[in-house]
């Protein structure tokens, strides 16, 4: 850690402002709290919202894990992890169970979270109604008055066009029977993990200047129709490296003759399983 930075990059006043927004978000699950998002030393869309929320939550004793689409070793994850290692001097880890704060881009780890952990999501567009109703004044009014019929119009359009609900990520949820919320672009495979989760789930949207939250053990229901119920979906394969059949998979093209493999998107989970002796179609036991 270099002493030129205040702890976790942001100044204390800013962190206090963000913490107030987080507390308000936790008090009203699913409600989008506006906050004065700061310029961060990275472009919008790279997780400026998530980074600010993480910075406001970090203490020197924390152990931080950062994942991007489930992986610990992609550019975004590596650079954010290094950023906090340098500006806050906190320990980092790749093991989900060891981390106290996990910043994530578009995945929830496969390893179940526990009480005391904080999961921070990076959110590009916090407003679930945005693509149907472009006016912010109107969407706020709709949240205020619980007028959520429009959200089902989107799902109706999916079924009318594709024969089923084709929304595969950023699948809208209803929080505690009150607010409709965009769970950030996580695959809908991860939606059931939002419900009754023992960890604190925080969502930060830097460009849109919104923070929202799910406190531990919050009721989260994915929206659906009675005759077209919600179904979490994944590729119909087992992981080729660790053999897991219950994880979310990435499809990797391996050559230009149609060769492909399916691997766990959660690299930590996959590695842990292989270390424990599991092996898939292509993976040797590590």
């Amino acid at each position: 850690m270099t002493d030129d930075y205040n702890f976790a990059y942001l100044d204390e006043e800013t962190k206090r402002m963000i913490r107030r927004a987080i507390l308000k978000g936790v008090a009203i699950p699913g409600y989008q709290v506006p906050f004065a998002s700061r310029e961060m030393p990275m472009p919008y869309g790279w997780g400026t919202g998530g980074v600010q929320v993480t910075a406001a939550c970090l203490t020197p004793e924390d152990r931080l894990k950062v994942i991007d689409q489930g992986a610990d070793d992609t550019t975004n994850a590596v650079s954010i992890r290094k950023f906090f290692h340098r500006t806050a001097g906190v320990d980092t880890t790749e093991a989900t169970a060891e981390a106290t704060i996990i910043q994530t881009r578009h995945r929830i780890p496969e390893t179940p979270l526990a009480e005391g952990q904080i999961l921070v999501f990076q959110v590009p567009i916090p407003e679930p109604l945005r693509f149907l109703e472009p006016r912010e004044t109107e969407t706020r009014k709709m949240h205020e008055l619980e007028e959520y019929g429009l959200m089902h119009v989107k799902l109706y359009e999916d079924i009318a066009r594709h024969g089923r609900i084709a929304t595969a990520y950023a699948y809208p949820v209803l929080v505690e029977d009150r607010y409709v919320m965009d769970p950030s672009p996580i695959p809908k495979f991860d939606n059931p993990k939002l419900d009754d989760n023992p960890a604190i789930l925080l969502f930060g949207a830097g460009r849109e200047q919104r923070i929202y939250a799910l406190p531990p053990y919050t009721k989260v229901v994915s929206l659906d129709f009675e005759d077209h119920p919600f179904e979490p979906s994944k590729a119909d394969h087992d992981c080729d490296l660790c053999g897991a059949s219950d994880t979310y998979l990435d499809e990797v093209i391996t050559d230009d003759r149609g060769g492909r493999m399916f691997v766990c998107s959660d690299t930590d989970h996959c590695r842990t399983r292989r270390a424990a002796g599991h092996a898939g179609r292509l993976g040797a036991v590590a």
Partner: peptide, 18 residues
């Protein structure tokens, strides 16, 4: 779509059966 336009009011008053 036309169907979605007509269905919006039904969904707004709680219609949940496609």
């Amino acid at each position: 779509s036309a169907g979605g336009n007509v269905g919006e009011r039904l969904m707004a008053v709680g219609g949940r059966h496609y």
